[in-house]
Design a protein around this nucleic acid. Structure first.
Lengths: 337, 337
DNA sequence: GTATTTTAGTTAAACGATTAACTAAATTCT
DNA sequence: AGAATTTAGTTAATCGTTTAACTAAAATAC
């Protein structure tokens, strides 16, 4: 079943069929009907490959994720990806996923879907290497960043309100009368973590609470459970009087809770702890983790919506969307005794 | 950069370039070198669309998931999908994901990637409607089923050893000296659940343990946490003396544990419970859930490997792969007091 | 009533590869 | 040595669309 069969059946040229498919206004209502019924009768659908070849539109969006994010057990980026998938379905796109080595490993090998011209645009989730970004700029593909964006260049991005969330988290602890509040970070070089940290500091400042060097641990290699465990150990050693902890994400919070439990501290009676992200496991710890919920799927769907606008309307300027976060109070935080 | 540019630079015909790309043996080592260096110099990659049009190979695999599976919080099918993605990356395929309404809702609208001839084969994960399957059979696409396969037709599938797992789970409880052991199922009509149930029964039988009608609850609508909660309630009402429960999956087990906790039962002191699947949350319940681990990512990767063989070698007969499962002992099961 | 514009469609080129059929040169066979 | 075969490449058709350029008929303008 090709366009030719439809043309023959409807007794028009293939060009007319094509114009009908792309509903060009140049076609009369009458022939449109005729063609459409032929299409229906023959159960015809235009072939992607043929369309793509001449129109240079593939109907695909490339999704780039770093390997370490892909493999993490907390499905943070996975949720973003699924949100993107879902929205792509609505917008009649398909999403091609690829992973690239972590930002640290310098690498500028481009994803195959770029080389093969098999995507109309690219969504990049998380921190990727600068080399990759500059290699990508050789192509004229629109790019939407998620939860990260490269400094300097003007680009389109969907970001989390990390600063606001950091502030909200900290204010929650302050409202529970805590005075000695600590921040547990992984690698502070990641912009998201940095902004959460800044929100933390600004909240302390706003309430005239002290902030010393032993109120934070920000020198772990990344934000994993293991490092949360280690960070909590360091923190308690340097600052035994701490009564509340704001962990930069749930993984770190969970790791920290494991350390606290192993040392006989009771959460939230001895120490309150709040996380960030609201990943599935946060709901299942004992006690359940109070956290700042990030609408992960929304991040993905917003990215696709933004990409869609970029593709539909060439004159849309690149811009940034910030999605809000929400305090979810569970059982790991309590009023200071 | 098209094949023409390469041909010009290497001073050969475009056919020769094409033959080199597809490493046809008809080309001498010498011209091969010449062409390859032109390719490298020009940073040329063949366009997917153009290739696809003439060769009728898209390089894409379609992945069909039912909506309810896609949306479930326990990322069971998500893990299968990710495993498929990963393997697809190795095999140089892209995966196009789509969801279809649940099997119950009769629906025979085919995924767009099928209509547009945008995939070389299809992986179907979970139970889909028969209408869909028969609509699909109008196309000559190879199909690989995962965790399900249609009765009757000879088809390729990657399945879980549900029967063996059910037996192993039950034997674990038996080895802990339990006598009154119950099975908590959702909808028994799902083949996977049915096989787990059969494994359960066969283990009881092999150890000459009784099996009565109040040793199982298999009338909930599906295998969710909520229904696990409800099923446990029913079970305890009908069979108050039960000391061990084999839940047909982790979601049901977690729901059941919630009910048991709410009623003041202690797990595993009063009642032992074992699940099936080993999803993330199972690790985080209190107590951590003993379960039968299903290698979810492996299911996905095996599906892609099988698809790859089907596509490479037309004469490969359809066949079935069963992946093994493994008992993971955590803290929700204990020797009978 | 003729000239101009609009409408509704057609023709044909193009997109960038693959591949069957062909060919000339080199090699092997007898 | 001449015929037959193999090797290494080329030519040209083809895949199924889109779209620029064209055209004939109808509508509008003057």
């Amino acid at each position: 079943m090709t366009i030719k069969d439809v043309a023959k059946k409807a007794q028009v040229s293939i060009a007319t069929v094509s114009l009908v498919i792309n509903n060009n206004k140049r076609i009369s209502e009458e022939t449109k009907q005729k063609v459409n019924s032929a299409i229906r009768d023959l159960n015809y659908y235009p072939s992607r490959s043929a369309r793509g070849l001449v129109s240079r539109k593939t109907g695909n969006i490339g999704f780039i994720l770093t390997e370490n994010h892909f493999l993490r057990s907390e499905p943070f980026y996975t949720q973003i990806f699924l949100g993107a998938e879902f929205e792509a379905h609505n917008k009649e796109f398909y999403v091609l996923l690829t992973t690239v080595p972590a930002a640290s490993k310098s690498n500028n090998k481009l994803p195959r879907f770029v080389l093969e011209k098999n995507v109309d645009g690219i969504i990049i989730a998380g921190t990727v290497s600068h080399k990759l970004i500059s290699a990508l700029s050789g192509y004229t593909l629109p790019i939407v960043y998620v939860d990260y964006y490269p400094e300097g260049k003007e680009s389109s991005a969907v970001l989390i309100d990390n600063y606001g969330g950091g502030k909200t988290a900290t204010e929650h602890l302050i409202s529970l009368k805590h005075k000695n509040i600590a921040f547990l970070g992984g690698n502070i070089s990641h912009p998201s973590i940095k902004h959460r940290f800044e929100g933390f500091k600004s909240a302390l400042e706003a309430h005239k609470l002290p902030f010393g060097t032993n109120s934070s641990v920000v020198d772990e290699v990344d934000t994993s459970r293991d490092n949360g465990y280690k960070a909590a150990k360091k923190l308690l050693k340097n600052n035994p009087g701490v009564t509340a902890i704001f962990a930069c994400n749930d993984a770190v919070a969970i790791g920290a809770m494991q350390y606290l439990a192993s040392e006989g501290y009771s959460v939230p009676n001895d120490i309150s702890i709040i996380g960030f992200d609201d990943v599935e496991p946060a709901r299942l710890t004992t006690p359940a983790l109070t956290t700042i919920a990030v609408p992960k799927q929304e991040l993905g769907s917003e990215a696709v919506k933004l990409m869609n606008r970029l593709l539909e309307d060439k004159k849309v300027r690149s811009h940034t969307i910030t999605v809000g976060v929400e305090l979810v109070v569970r059982n790991s935080t309590a009023r200071k005794k």
